[in-house]
Amino acid sequence: MKLAAAVMACAVSFAGTAMAQQGSPENVEVQAAAKEAGLEFKDSRYRNGDDQPTPVVTRISKVDWATWQGFRRYHDACHVCHGPNALGSTFAPSLADSLKTMDYETFYGTVVGGRVREAGGTTAVMPAFGDKNIMCYLDDIYTYIKARSLNAEGKGGMPPGPSEWS
């Protein structure tokens, strides 16, 4: 109950921002790229035909608001284990790789429920996240990591933030 309330609370406060960004003139290229990819802007983010959050990345690396927000939130809580740019660390897998095969529902379930895995005699543990810092931005984080997984092998980099959009 608490979790659902938190998600709802942030959906209200951030929808306005996302709408404003989506309609802002400097985002025309992103909109064009989204149109070309056949994505629909719905419930504060771009979505594919299955209604799943989907990143938009232009040729010159501009991204939609959700992907950029996901970049920020990923590098807050997730990167301490899963590494910069979702490329993995010495003790947690590369999520850019994981999302090549893991679907949206499994991703969501893993973040909410956690996961324990034994590998080579060493226990790896993903905790269950339930706080606002993650849950409010889970679709954004998914979108960012999806953008990373769609990237070609071995590539790094980060999406530029709004301050760099002009």
């Binding site: 990345v57 010159i60 690396s61 991204v63 990167h79 301490v80 284990c81 590494g83 910069p84 740019n85 490329l87 993995g88 660390s89 010495t90 003790f91 590369s94 953008a147 990373r148 990237n151 070609a152 071995g154 590539k155 790094g156 980099g157 980060m158 999406p159 530029p160």
Partner: peptide, 19 residues
């Protein structure tokens, strides 16, 4: 191991640029 295992990237590169 976290900061370096994945390779640090050049901050002026955008998303999709080669580290």
């Amino acid at each position: 191991g976290i900061g370096l295992a994945a390779g640090l990237t050049n901050p002026t590169d955008g998303l999709g640029a080669v580290g």
